[in-house]
Structures are given as structure tokens and as C-alpha cells.
Nucleic acid binder design. Structure first.
Lengths: 292, 292
DNA sequence: AATCTGTCTATTGTGGATAAAAGACAAATA
DNA sequence: TATTTGTCTTTTATCCACAATAGACAGATT
């Protein structure tokens, strides 16, 4: 087949939720807005809704006939884009499966294992190469450089430079800047999770990304913001992979974040720098401990 | 056709130069080493040499029959890899042709203009996206963010952080490190060019890259070294594009480099930092002046 | 024993084809 | 008049095919 219709399936599932809360659906362009897809896809969804007797559809009248049932949804495996599938599959291989640094990566073999064409794998590898974990030998294979101690040290060195710079920009933001509101929301979530840490400590990973990304964004520098992708993917898979002492580690990080947030709010560059350094130091330790 | 044989043609041309200096060619693996290609390609070259009556070839005996003539070489246009062609063509369009920021980039159109397949253009754009000049809208077009003042400022901000850090590592290198020898060579070239600046000022661009890359490499950080690609490509095309006062600008930069080199050699972090800052400041000015 | 050559296989780089998705435009509707 | 819809065209995402190139291995040569 030429293209997976994952955009359609994912939007279809999300549209089912919209449908569940109303008795008649809005106009096609409006639905497109809500779902983030083009009218072509919206019309395909409406057509399928009609076939499934979920609605009647006559021009502007889209009347809901029944509530969606679990079996109306497409299975979630079918809604992931190919890029996501390849990424997950690849990360599992290089992090979990004992992948030695220096190992060769074979596009064809990877494609066969994942059950996809070579072009998609190739494009993934090109995109992924900016994370510094693989390297291309032209006209030949890719080489896995591996998730090593050196990698972690190089990554954190740059991260520390960038985050210190960003924190310095953050304290200088005017009070009217929307970042302060977002910071308030993030702080509130920190307190909520800390209050029920035993049950909710897994929510830290996502919150961590949200917080640090907010800080990086205040640098207004695309290279700094883009670099956060590297940090993000590393920590994302790292959290999935290494769960020892997760509750305790996360609790500690949450406390550090709170101190860091308070320091940012003080508008005092010195305090912010200090709190930032303290947190980054312990984040680095945590990362390094998980590497053999 | 499926794949250009530019590797073959380029290696063939280089092999002609090897042939010009000897009466019999070495073994296939050795030639492969020298030319940086596989034995398969070496054998293809030898076969073609035989056809062109440049050599006789019988197993290990490869006897040179005549000197290569200019018409034995493949034209240089045919030896550039597709990736190089696409890059040049794309940079010409976005730097020279009044490309407005926000403009859409169309893979198909670009491919047609360059006379190549869409796959190659697509892969180029993915690779190129890390330079921060373009951005992808999934399932839709690319957007040109443009070579703007903001871009230059963001680029130089990161450049300055990285180069200051690298310079600090450089002064700490042990005297036995090979970087000092390379630094000596680079310094000698600086003096040569300065002595004949009116005729040789165009050689600065290449030397500039060589010098700063050496500095960045001493950071031993892949992210810092990789980032130098971004700086490199921007300055490379910038030099080609903006030639006003080139002689004078280059002379000044050469002088600054010499001061910077001397400061590095002093092993004094303070002096190195100061010389580095001074040069980076004027490099930034030069870059900014060339942007409308 | 070490290296080289002949031969064969596997993988990459690139163009082309096609379904999915985006998007343009005029006629229809409120 | 401002949206919305019906219809049509264009572009992207993906697979596949095939030549160029890399690479493996056994037998030949020094």
C-alpha cells in the first residue's frame, strides 16, 4: 500500500469522542479545526459514520443517531503513525536488546523486522542521527555509537549550558508574559502529585518535560529549544527503562523543581542559577547511575 | 536510472592522478585504501583504464601505457554527489532568489527544477532541517523560515557559548596533543596569506573553517562539534554571497585569529577567553551587516 | 603465511508509482 | 455577505524495483 491511513483512523477515534457529547455535529471546516485535519479527511470520517449508522448526514445536517460503542473505535495499534512505530521499535532494540556500541545498523534488516519499507526506515535514521547516537558511513551502513557514559556526559554538558542560559532569560521575562501563568499551573501540578506521591509518581516524567521545555523556550533560541528534543527523547526512554527507586527519585526531583520554580519567580538571577545548578547536578547523577 | 555512478567517476579521476605518477599500479585493496572506495569500484576503474588503453591489466600486473590526457577525465559536473547538487541548488534559491520567510517549499516542484527524484529532495530536506532554516508541517509542506536577523542572532548566541567552552578546553590540552601541531600549521598558513593578502584573501574562508573546527573539536563533545556544521554551512554560503569588502574583512579576521592563536598557546584561560570574545564579536558584526 | 584476485551476494541510493491527505475554487445555502 | 458544501487538483507518505557500491569467501599467487 502507498500510505497508511493512520491520520484518518486517529481523527476518526477522536471524532467519536466529539460525537459522544453532542446531538449534531458542526460544519466540516470547524470539525477540521478541532481535529487538526483537512476537510478531505473530515468528509471521509463523516462518510464512515454514516455507514456505521452513527449519524445521518445531509449537507449541513449531521444528526447523531446513537452513542459510540467500544467496538466503533479503531484499535490503538492502527492509529500510530509509521514514524512512531519505527521509533519505538528502534529504541527498544538499542536500549533493551544488548546492542553493543560499534554495531552495524542495516536498513533492510530493520525494515523487514518492523514490517515496513526501506524508505521510511531510512528517513527515520536520517532524522534520528541528530541525536548523536548513530552515524552514517556514506554508501555503507550506519554505526550505533551507543547509549554510553560519554554520550550522557556530552548530552548533560550541553544541557547545562543551555538550561542555565534559559533560566537567566526566564527571570528577566516581564510579569505580563504568559510563561508565568504556565509556571503557576506547573507548580500546582507539582504540589498535587507530591501530596499523593505513592499513587501518582509516574506522572512525573511528563511533567518534567513540560517544565524544562517551558524554561528552554524562554531562551527564544531555536537551537536551544530544538536541542530539548534530544534531552526529551533520552529521558523519556530512560524513564521507561530504568524504574529502580522511581518513586523516591521522582519525589526528590519534584522538590528540587519547586525550589527552582520559586527561585525563578524571585527574579533574582543568582538564586535561579543556583537552584538550576542544584537540580541539574542531581539529574545528571540519576542518569549516570543508570548506565552500566 | 537507479543510482548515479558519481563515486566511480570521482574515484576514476583521482586514480588518474595516481597513475600519472607511477609506472605500475599497486594491488586492488591498496588502491581501494588510497581512493577510499571498495574493491568493486577499483576493479571497475581498472577495467575502464584498460579499455581506454591507459594500462594493461593482467591479475597483479597493471602496467601504465601512457600518461592521462585532459580528455581522459570525467567532467567535474559529473563527479558531484546528488546530495551536493541538491544542497547547492537549494541554497542558491533561498539565499539569492528573493525567498521570503514564510514561503512554502514544495518537494515535487523542487525535484522537478533540480531534475531529480522526490526521494532525494525529501531526504535532503530532512537532513537540512536541523539547520533551523526550514520547518515541516506534517502531511503538508515545508516552511522556509528564512535567513533572517533573528536566525543569525540565535546562531551566534549558541556559537559563542560553544566556542568559549571549546577554547577553555583547548588551553588545557597537554602539549603532547596533536592539536598543537595542527595549530602551528594553521598559524603558518595565516602568515602566508597575510603576506600576500591582495592575491590570496579568498583562501580565508576555507582556513577559517579549519581553524574553528579545530577549536570546537577540543571540546570532545559531539553536540558541539556537530553544531559546527551549522555554522560552517552558513558562513560558507555567506562568503560566496556577500563579497563587499572581502579583502579588508578577511585581513582583519586573519589578524584576530593570530591574536587568538597566540592566546591559546599561552595556556592562559583568561587571555584565551578574551581573544575569543573579541573575534566572535566582530564575526557576528560582519554576519549581521550582510543581512538586510 | 600473508596477501591478492575472481566471483558472488547483500545493501545502499535513487527514480517512479500510487493511495492518503491537503487544499483550491465555484456553486449553494443561510 | 459570509460560510458551507461538492468537486477537482496537487502534494505528501510510502512501497517497490534496480543499478551502483560495498563486502564476504575461497582459491590462486607470492
Amino acid at each position: 500500500m502507498a500510505k497508511q491511513n493512520t491520520v484518518f483512523k486517529d481523527a476518526y477515534n477522536r471524532c467519536l469522542k466529539v460525537l459522544a457529547e453532542t446531538s449534531s455535529l458542526p460544519s466540516e471546516p470547524e470539525l477540521g479545526q478541532v481535529l487538526g485535519v483537512s476537510r478531505t479527511t473530515v468528509r471521509a470520517i463523516l462518510g464512515r459514520f454514516e455507514e456505521a449508522k452513527l449519524i445521518t448526514w445531509d449537507k449541513r445536517k449531521k444528526i447523531v443517531l446513537r452513542q459510540p460503542q467500544p467496538e466503533d473505535y479503531f484499535p490503538t495499534e492502527e492509529t500510530d503513525s509509521l514514524a512512531e512505530i519505527i521509533e519505538r521499535s528502534f529504541m527498544r532494540r538499542i536500549l533493551a536488546g544488548g546492542a553493543e556500541p560499534g554495531m552495524q545498523i542495516n536498513e533492510l534488516e530493520l525494515a523487514r523486522e518492523i514490517g515496513t519499507g526501506t524508505t521510511s526506515v531510512r528517513e527515520f535514521l536520517i532524522r534520528f542521527s541528530r541525536f548523536g547516537l548513530i552515524e552514517k558511513r556514506p554508501n555503507s551502513h550506519w554505526i550505533l555509537k551507543g547509549f554510553t557514559r560519554e554520550f550522557a556526559l556530552e548530552l548533560t554538558e550541553v544541557r547545562e549550558m543551555f538550561e542555565l542560559r534559559s533560566a537567566a532569560s526566564f527571570v528577566a521575562l516581564p510579569d505580563s508574559h504568559s510563561a508565568w501563568q504556565e509556571l503557576n499551573k506547573i507548580e500546582a501540578l507539582h504540589r498535587e502529585i507530591l501530596a499523593d506521591i505513592d499513587n501518582r509518581y509516574q506522572e512525573f516524567s511528563e511533567l518534567d518535560e513540560r517544565f524544562h521545555l517551558l524554561v528552554h523556550k524562554s531562551s527564544s533560541n531555536r537551537f536551544i529549544v530544538d536541542f530539548y528534543d534530544v534531552i526529551s527523547i533520552v529521558f523519556h526512554y530512560h524513564y521507561q527503562w530504568n524504574k529502580t527507586n522511581a518513586r523516591q527519585r521522582n519525589a526528590r526531583a519534584l522538590e528540587e523543581h519547586l525550589a527552582y520554580i520559586e527561585a525563578l519567580r524571585s527574579h533574582d538571577p543568582k538564586r535561579a542559577e543556583e537552584a538550576c545548578r542544584r537540580h541539574l547536578r542531581s539529574a545528571r547523577e540519576t542518569l549516570l547511575q543508570s548506565i552500566p
